[in-house]
Computed example of a mutant assay.
Amino acid sequence: MFGYVSRRVLSAIPIALIAVTACFFILRLAPGGPFDGERALPPATLANLRAHYNLDLPLIQQYLLYVWRLLHGDFGPSMVYNDFTVAQMLWIGLPFTLMLGFTAFVIGTIVGLVAGALSAVNQNKWPDYVLVMLVMVGLVVPNFLMAAILQLVFGVYLNWFPAGGWQNGSLAHLVLPVTVLVLPHAGRTARLMRGSMIEVLGTNYIRTAKAKGLGQRLILARHAIKPALLPVVSYLGPGLSYLLTGSLIVEQVFALPGIGKYFISAALNRDYGLVLGTTILYMVIILAVNLLVDILYAWLDPKVRYH
């Protein structure tokens, strides 16, 4: 297993380098720059700023300098937030973003697994129809629209939960944003679990277990749930990445102090360092999560063994 993990880590290095290179050149070659505001800066001031951030160097030299600093753990300075480096900005927003994303991930996964299993056991009955309908609502309505609807209904009209902000660490402020993130993740998980469970329940060994007189709960617990989880486990890695990237928009809509607040502002103001730093951070998280999912998949499926 250690050798497999090592090979996966080594194989991820070229992917990471390609992603960093693509993001770097796309940002630098796009029209505009971090100092192109509504009011033009004096030429001397603009030249000093460009020299300070090494923007006066040839593009390939800027790239090599950035990669060299990145290998030493330096994400560079922020071009918008002058008092902070990129690493400091990420450290400020990362804990909240991870807390929001992982909370939605855990709740959405549990809700999706339970809903999918119940739907499969009651296939073509009214619980199945109700659960499928609820799942489709979470899938067809995009995050930003669902966030606005929940804000308006539960935050403004009913006044059950805060419509936005994060004051004194109150958990009530997390109810609506977590719900927005949970709905699509739970929907995708439930659909995968339902289809996989229906397929497993129709296999020969499940019919044999029923013929031996085993109860439905015992069959589900011992023989059906574990193989039915395999397609769901394959989705958990990309599913968590969807939640973390989707949380950027949700954080902006609900005015939450996560990375999304800084990332969107940096993208609008062409803060090269902060946009690249956020992209690299998310890439590392996603690669790590996918590695953990592969290890979990090998544990669930006895036929899969990594040497």
Score class of each variant (00 low, 15 high):
I18M: 14
L296M: 09
Y306H: 10
N54P: 03
V5K: 05
N82Q: 15
I198N: 10
A51W: 08
V137R: 05
V132D: 14
D74G: 08
Y4E: 08
F96Q: 09
S170T: 03
I264Y: 05
L145I: 13
L274Y: 01
L94I: 14
A47P: 12
I92H: 05
M1D: 11
F24I: 10
P177H: 12
L236Q: 07
A148K: 15
N54T: 12
L181T: 01
L291G: 00
F161H: 09
Y242S: 06
L100I: 12
L236I: 04
R50F: 07
V111Q: 06
L131Q: 02
G202S: 14
W160E: 09
F102R: 00
A40L: 08
I264N: 01
L41N: 03
I198L: 15
R188Q: 11
L291P: 01
S78Q: 02
L134F: 13
I26C: 06
D56T: 10
L240P: 00
Y66I: 13
A12E: 07
G246Y: 00
C23S: 11
A255L: 13
M1H: 06
E251K: 05
P257Y: 09
P43V: 06
Q88K: 08
T278M: 00
L248P: 03
T208C: 07
V232K: 04
G246D: 00
P227Q: 07
W91H: 11
F2D: 13
G164H: 11
L292N: 04
L248V: 13
W299L: 11
T208L: 15
T45K: 08
I110F: 08
L287V: 09
G187D: 01
N269A: 11
A211Y: 07
Q151C: 09
A186P: 08
W91A: 14
N124T: 07
L94D: 05
G239F: 10
D294H: 00
Q252M: 05
V175T: 14
L183C: 06
E251N: 09
L192P: 12
N54D: 12
Y262R: 11
L100H: 05
D128K: 06
P231T: 12
L220P: 02
R217I: 09
D271L: 07
G202L: 15
I92C: 00
P77Y: 06
V20W: 01
I13R: 08
I107R: 03
S196I: 11
V253E: 09
C23D: 06
Y297H: 06
M193A: 08
P34T: 11
L287Q: 09
M89Y: 14
L296I: 15
